[in-house]
Design a binder for these strands. Structure first.
Lengths: 229, 229
DNA sequence: AACAATACCGAACATCTGTTAGAATTCGAC
DNA sequence: GTCGAATTCTAACAGATGTTCGGTATTGTT
């Protein structure tokens, strides 16, 4: 959050604390019930405050939900960057990427962030732009990891890295829709599975030309598939 | 829908038609505005009907939204199976899989199905169970394609096919959150990109052991990565 | 043309919605 | 402890919400 960037003003005023509490409570309610049925009065009740008092902290109901989204992106960013840092200074780009993806997945599962997409599209556009900007910054973390890997020659040629990144993150983000915490797989297992897919591929290299449509796919070795366009 | 399963009763009664119109209108509203702000009265107005009349066709507001979800799954299923059928009887499992994924993506983008996830979690559980069952049937299409490919030895060993399927579909479904129709890529391009990722992998095969954590990854050739556990 | 079933209307209901504004309380600095 | 500012409460508003129900129009069949 902003405080971590500027912690010199340690004056944690009371309004700051209840504002934070409201955001946290609202987030929880969004997760439990859908964003339908999450009303200003319910948020207030869950935060042990009166409904009218909320408007001392937020201009409107939509401002609350924007703050919730913001805290979600910032929270994910912090945990992902921390995970990257924990791989140490000698880590390879792929190690860092794996750490980042694992952190992203864990955060997504924990906060169960269906909330994120739920709202984005139909926010007042001023607020939406701001949120999209924050999302872009978050995505940039992964974009950097990928282009770093590319510079070191760790990636195959011919891929559109931004599409790769979106598909990667999408695969993990969507996990929140099917993942069963009671099941045998840990979130790290899922991340490893994805990394394995991205490493060797899922399909056997034998007769791949048939599975693609309009691309010219010819090769020297059995693996060197040249991807045109 | 059920009619396609049992078309002998061709009696398209008037109630059936307005019910269908209501579902279509509701779906459109869910897409345009969030599922917040989509009220019974707005659905009624958009369908040129009075609000009270809706309750002749649906028991409650949530029943409408369940019907919308149902029509979404069934619509996707129909288009995906049609796409599979169009690959012809001599197509390879990978060709069929590609066709299925492409159809899934196109449908997802067209209907912009954020709606799908938005609601699932907080439906009354009786309705939710029914919907989850429908989703399972839909997922089974892709599960079958994958296991068919596996039986023919087209897949690498060591992957959990259900996880692979979820990640695949998740990557594509999430596309609705970032895809820009004005951009240079067609939906088929995105599908091809994914297929390419699943074919050759994104990472170079050289030093993959470092990017994985607890897995023993050793091999005979440069590509034959044995994935333990 | 008559009739019964079907499909829709229209008004009313109780409740809930986001939001406002002034009064009442609590807080932090002196 | 006092005072002014920061924070919360209380009460009310105007309107929207899902749903019900008795009546009315429309439909398809004989």
């Amino acid at each position: 959050m902003l405080q971590s960037v500027e912690p010199d003003k340690a004056k944690l005023t009371k309004a700051d604390r209840t504002r934070a509490r409201l955001i946290e409570v609202a987030k929880r309610l969004y997760q439990e019930h859908g964003s339908d049925h999450v009303t200003v009065r319910r948020i207030a009740a869950a935060a042990k405050i009166e409904a009218g008092s909320i408007y001392y902290h937020f201009r409107s109901r939509e401002e609350i939900m924007r703050a919730v989204l913001e805290s979600g992106v910032y929270g994910a960013r912090d945990e992902v960057m921390q995970a990257i840092a924990e791989t140490g200074p000698d880590s390879s780009p792929l190690q860092r990427l794996r750490a980042a993806l694992a952190a992203h997945l864990k955060y997504t599962l924990r906060e169960h962030f269906s909330s994120r997409l739920r709202a984005i599209r139909r926010l007042p556009k001023r607020l939406r732009d701001r949120h999209m900007q924050q999302e872009r910054e978050y995505a940039a973390i992964f974009a950097n990891l990928l282009s770093e890997a590319e510079k070191r020659g760790l990636l195959r040629d011919g891929f559109d890295l931004s599409v790769v990144r979106m598909l990667m993150l999408g695969a993990l983000t969507w996990t929140a829709e099917w993942y069963d915490p009671e099941g045998p797989m840990t979130p790290d297992d899922v991340t490893d599975e994805l990394m394995a897919m991205l490493t060797t591929g899922v399909f056997r290299p034998a007769d791949q030309a048939g599975a693609r449509t309009s691309r010219s796919a010819l090769m020297s070795g059995p693996e060197a598939v040249v991807r045109g366009r």
